[in-house]
C-alpha cells in the first residue's frame, strides 16, 4: 500500500513562521547558556551586514569590501578538496551543494575586535560535505584557503600580508552540527563582500575563523597554519573561541558593542563560546582555554 501522508499543503509552515521558529530556537539556546539572556535574536539589517565587513582582500576599511567586492567573479567557482579524504578532486560549486539541505541559521557573530552582529545565514552543515567526500581515519584537522586573485581583490596587491588567507579547524569542530558552510544570507545568495559564493561560519569562535570565499579544503593530521596566528601569534590563537575571560592583549573581551545599536547602544556582556556553550563546551573538556586561546 503506497504511503499516504495526512499532512496537506496547508500544514507546511509559512516561511515567516519558520523564520520566527528559528529565532526562538536560537533564543532558547542563548537562554540556556545564560539565564539573564532570555532574548530572541533579532538579526541586524541587511545594510549593516553588507556594509560593515572585515574582508582585507578588498581593503582595510570596514566599508572597502562593499565598495570593491563587486568586481569579484563568483561563477564559475570550484573547491579543491584533498588530503586525507576518500574522494579528492576539484568540485564545481553546484556539485558541492548537491544533496545538502540548505537551512536558515540565525547566529550571533562576534568579531575579535569586540563588536558583534546577528546574521541570518543560509547554508548547510560542513559535516554533510565532509561525510560525502569521506574523511580518512588519520585526519585530525581541516585546513581552508580563500581565493587568491589580486586582479579582482585589490587588497591582495598589498605585499605585507601573507596571501592567500588560510584558516583551520580541528576535525571535531568541523564536524559539529553548528559549523556551517554558508551560501547566502537573508535568503539571498551570499553578497560578495560577505564571502561569496561560499564561506565558513563557526558561531562560537571569533569572526576571523569564519573564512570567506573558500577555494580549497584539505584534511590533514597536523594543525594547519592560520593567517592571524602567523601575523601575531601572541594575539590570535588557533582556537580563537569567544571567551569573555581571556582578554586580547590590547583590549578586554569581557563585553562587546552591538553593531546597529546606535550611538547610545553601549555594551553587552560577551557570552562564553558566544552563547553556544551548551552545544560546544564539551569539545574543550580538559583544555586550559587561557593557554589554548
Amino acid at each position: 500500500m503506497p504511503f499516504k501522508s495526512d499532512l496537506g499543503w496547508s500544514d507546511v509552515t509559512p516561511k515567516a513562521l519558520f523564520l520566527n521558529r528559528r529565532q526562538l530556537i536560537a533564543g532558547a539556546a542563548a537562554a540556556l547558556a545564560s539565564p539573564a539572556l532570555a532574548e530572541t535574536l533579532e538579526p541586524n539589517s541587511l545594510e549593516d551586514i553588507t556594509s560593515y565587513n572585515n574582508f582585507y582582500e578588498f581593503g582595510w576599511d570596514k566599508g572597502d569590501p562593499a565598495r570593491h567586492a563587486g568586481a569579484l567573479t563568483t561563477d564559475p567557482w570550484s573547491i579543491e578538496i584533498g588530503g586525507m579524504v576518500d574522494k579528492p578532486g576539484t568540485y564545481d560549486l553546484a556539485d558541492i551543494l548537491k544533496g545538502q539541505p540548505i537551512e536558515e541559521r540565525i547566529y550571533r557573530f562576534r568579531c575579535v575586535e569586540a563588536w558583534s552582529m546577528v546574521v541570518p545565514w543560509t547554508g548547510f552543515a560542513l559535516s554533510g560535505l565532509l561525510n560525502r567526500i569521506g574523511v580518512q581515519p588519520s585526519a585530525r584537522y581541516v585546513a581552508f584557503e580563500t581565493l587568491l586573485r589580486p586582479e579582482e581583490m585589490p587588497g591582495q596587491r598589498d605585499g605585507s600580508f601573507p596571501w592567500p588567507y588560510v584558516e583551520g579547524l580541528r576535525l571535531d569542530e568541523a564536524m559539529h552540527p553548528l559549523t556551517l558552510l554558508a551560501t547566502g544570507l537573508y535568503g539571498e545568495p551570499m553578497p560578495n563582500q560577505n564571502g561569496a559564493p561560499i564561506r565558513l561560519v563557526v558561531p562560537w569562535k571569533y569572526g576571523f575563523k569564519s573564512i570567506k570565499s573558500i577555494v580549497k579544503i584539505t584534511l590533514t593530521d597536523r594543525q594547519p597554519p592560520t593567517t592571524w596566528n602567523i601575523l601575531q601569534p601572541s594575539e590570535y590563537g588557533f582556537h580563537a573561541n569567544v571567551n569573555p575571560e581571556v582578554d586580547h592583549p590590547r583590549w578586554s573581551q569581557a563585553s562587546e558593542r552591538r553593531i546597529g545599536a546606535g550611538l547610545f547602544g553601549g555594551r553587552v556582556d560577551t557570552l562564553m563560546f558566544n552563547g553556544y556553550a551548551d552545544q560546544v563546551a564539551s569539545l574543550y573538556a580538559g583544555q586550559d582555554l587561557a593557554v589554548d586561546y
Binding site: N44, E47, D48, S51, Y52, K62, G63, W115, R257, I259, G260, G262, L263, G265
Partner: peptide
C-alpha cells in the same frame, strides 16, 4: 551626523 545615524553602521567608532 553621529546622532542622525549617518556615519554608517558603527557611529560610535566613527565619532
Amino acid at each position: 551626523a553621529a546622532v542622525q545615524d549617518s556615519l554608517g553602521p558603527d557611529p560610535v567608532k566613527a565619532l
